[in-house]
């Protein structure tokens, strides 16, 4: 039996006078991969921000891995299992590629800070960094500043980092934004691998419908902050309402 990793009930988010999210309820089961689509400004990123704790929720409940997360700050929600990918890749560009991976390993293993100075740590870290970067073909950039990587490489590095961290709920915000088609395939494979082989539950916000329909098991369409359509990718693709949203009457 599948357990619920993420549960949202009657979520309302208001910013100023504007209601950004209205009455959103969503249940995401362990290992499931769901896609969230919708026109610009419909509240997709706001939804991810509310789940990960970067935006206060007015009413409703958020439960992560069975625990009430409503009153938890963002860093404690991360400890509960939320791993967040950002629209502009949450990579530290002034650090080397290696250091970005090391930061993820440090958090995943929860080392005491003084142990990070030891030679045993450096040896262990070297192996972890090598394998993580080889998986995304970035081993040759190990010592480069992350800021010199291309948009697609930054995304791959972000995914490599998310894989290392122990969060079982991945929230990815437009992972293909600014990524060349050839790297989109690599990104898709990596996300699929995280879901199928590593058992991560994935929620993806994406504008590239083709990319998302090939990846997700369930699609949620948001319009004006409300859940408009929900269903299997094939059903949603055929839904006339989706055509109207994206291409007009």
């Amino acid at each position: 039996m599948f357990r619920s990793v993420l549960s949202l009930e009657n979520l309302h988010v208001q910013i100023g006078q504007r209601m950004i999210l209205q009455d959103i309820s969503l249940e995401v089961k362990s290992g499931e991969m769901i896609g969230i689509i919708g026109p610009n400004g419909c509240g997709k990123t706001t939804l991810l921000n509310a789940i990960s704790g970067f935006l206060p929720v007015d009413t409703g409940t958020i439960s992560i891995n069975g625990q009430d997360a409503m009153n938890l700050p963002a860093h404690k929600r991360a400890a509960l299992g939320v791993a967040r990918g950002f629209q502009h890749a949450g990579i530290f560009r002034e650090m080397t590629v290696e250091e970005n991976i090391i930061m993820a390993v440090e958090r995943a293993q929860n080392f005491p800070w003084w142990w990070t100075m030891s030679s045993a740590f450096r040896k262990k870290m070297s192996g972890a960094v090598e394998s993580a970067l080889e998986e995304v073909n970035l081993a040759s950039h190990k010592k480069s500043l992350a800021g010199v990587l291309s948009g697609g490489e930054l995304r791959l590095l972000e995914l490599a980092r998310l894989k290392i961290m122990h969060g079982n709920l991945l929230l990815l915000d437009e992972p293909t934004a600014g990524v060349a088609p050839v790297l989109k395939d690599a990104l898709g494979k990596m996300i699929k691998k995280l879901s199928k082989e590593h058992g991560r539950t994935v929620v993806i916000v994406e504008h590239d419908l083709q990319f998302l329909f090939n990846l997700a098991e369930r699609i949620v369409v948001l319009v004006d902050g409300q859940k408009y359509i929900e269903g299997a990718p094939e059903d949603v693709r055929r839904d006339e309402r989706l055509q109207k949203i994206y291409f007009g009457e």
Binding site: S52, F54, P73, A74, H75, K76, A78, A79, V82, A83, R84, F86, G90, I91, F92, R93, E94, M95, M103, A104, R107, M165
Partner: peptide, 12 residues
């Protein structure tokens, strides 16, 4: 560099 990304990694 990126406070939000740091917080998202579980650091206060």
């Amino acid at each position: 560099e990126n406070k939000i990304a740091l917080i998202s990694m579980g650091t206060s």
